[in-house]
Design a protein around this nucleic acid. Structure first.
Lengths: 247, 247
DNA sequence: GCCTTTTTTCATCATCGGCTGAAATTACAT
DNA sequence: ATGTAATTTCAGCCGATGATGAAAAAAGGC
């Protein structure tokens, strides 16, 4: 009784600063519950999927009332979409910059390996240095990627431009490659990569500790070489294009 | 009123034969609701995941009362596990037979490509000829494979023996390969393969129709060659083993 | 200090969802 | 036909869940 009374005190100011102001958050040092909710939701959605999480769990995780979640995001779906969209732009920008830089600095000497590295590295780097939020985010994307019901549409909506950019650079590196081979090659690449960044711990169990899901550096160069060789094999075994000479 | 009365008639014998008997189903031509429930659950779980499906939906899909679902499987989790386990044995047996046959018929001339084909082909063949239930099942496995919370454990529990068999054969085909490279190579392989069999339609959208998720024959030879080349690249770029000459 | 706007909580609704007990139905053995 | 055991349905409990309206609290402008 007494304890519960204390618990339900208006708002235990506890550690966090108190929020609530007129103008939308001006990126001050003040607490931003909207972001805190997104963080909590990101973590939970990544671990249990959309249907495996309740708005109340999100509220608890964020230390907030359920109503606040709906105040900011309307519906549960809206919350999920906000989580998904939040980091997509940043990731896309990083990848585009990486691909641009690669093409600029290696004009005339583009290789499949280089293009793939330019695509993969930003993700690995962010996962290594971006903090736990990013790790959750990647696991979430991996899950969406494998969701039959709406995964295809969602991935397409958020990530297609960057992927097409990758395909372009790969096309420059392998001028004789057919379009389909590049698309299939990307499909294999993304399947492998997404499984890695979701860090399910499978390989740890399978290899009895010889490999660790969390060892992103081990993944980075292996995945790059693996896929580069795969792309080359795809192109080499494609039905021969009769005349190759350009110009 | 009248229509609803007709609807709630004891049991509209409709098309299906009426079930209910003493001894457990003796594989007659009679209806087996247990299997029908599993089929429905498989379909729904594959599409929406464990938490995205209610036992009531499963009951409707199977044309059965909810209570029957619990009568047969106890809990929703029990139902899910039953779905997951049902086809695992068959798939494992087919893969083991394929790997055994490959090793027997090609003793002394084992190749990475051959080993990988022996692992992949049964899945592709079953997906092509096994009917829609199998397609659902593969999509389900793909989803579990990418589930951070419990995917690793589940995959390990059901599929590890076959995977270790594959690793063994790959080790015979590439004696100089280190254990870790084989495990990582398998991780990439399974990520790519699972994404393909979950048929999310992503590549259809991405390629604007140039590639089709459902085109398993296109996947079969491409994925095999891609991964075979990938494995070789992994092994070639591994820290050099100082002395290689066997015997 | 007041007024306005925004943020946060409280209390609650209507529905859903997993599950269960008991009755009804069926199949089979004798 | 009668009894027995397995199957199937009915009806409902009870907690959880998505969502909402209104009140309270906080922030800022003046």
């Amino acid at each position: 009784m007494d304890a519960s009374a204390e618990t339900r005190a208006r708002k235990p100011p506890a550690s966090r600063k108190i929020a609530g102001r007129g103008r939308p958050s001006r990126s001050d040092d003040k607490v931003n519950y909207k972001e805190i909710i997104l963080d909590g939701a990101e973590h939970l959605f990544a671990q249990h999927g959309f249907h495996g999480v309740t708005t109340r769990q999100v509220a608890v995780e964020a230390g907030v009332d359920v109503a606040l979640v709906h105040y900011y995001f309307g519906t549960k779906r809206g919350l999920f979409d906000a989580v998904f969209a939040r980091r997509a732009e940043i990731l896309n920008a990083a990848r585009l910059a990486s691909l641009d830089a690669y093409e600029r600095d290696n004009a005339g000497a583009l290789t499949p390996m280089g293009a793939i590295a330019a695509f993969i590295d930003p993700m690995i780097d962010i996962s290594l240095t971006g903090g736990p939020g990013w790790k959750s985010y990647f696991a979430l994307v991996a899950q969406v990627n494998n969701t039959p019901a709406w995964g295809g549409v969602t991935m397409t909506r958020f990530f297609d431009p960057v992927v097409h950019r990758l395909i372009d650079v790969l096309g420059l590196a392998m001028p004789q490659a057919r379009e389909q081979e590049l698309y299939w090659g990307y499909q294999f690449l993304t399947g492998a990569m997404m499984l890695c960044v979701s860090e399910t711990g499978r390989i740890d169990l399978l290899s009895e500790g010889a490999c660790r899901s969390s060892d992103l550096e081990a993944i980075r160069h292996r995945l790059t070489g693996y896929c580069a060789a795969g792309f080359c094999a795809l192109v080499e075994s494609q039905p021969s294009v009769t005349s190759l000479s350009a110009t």
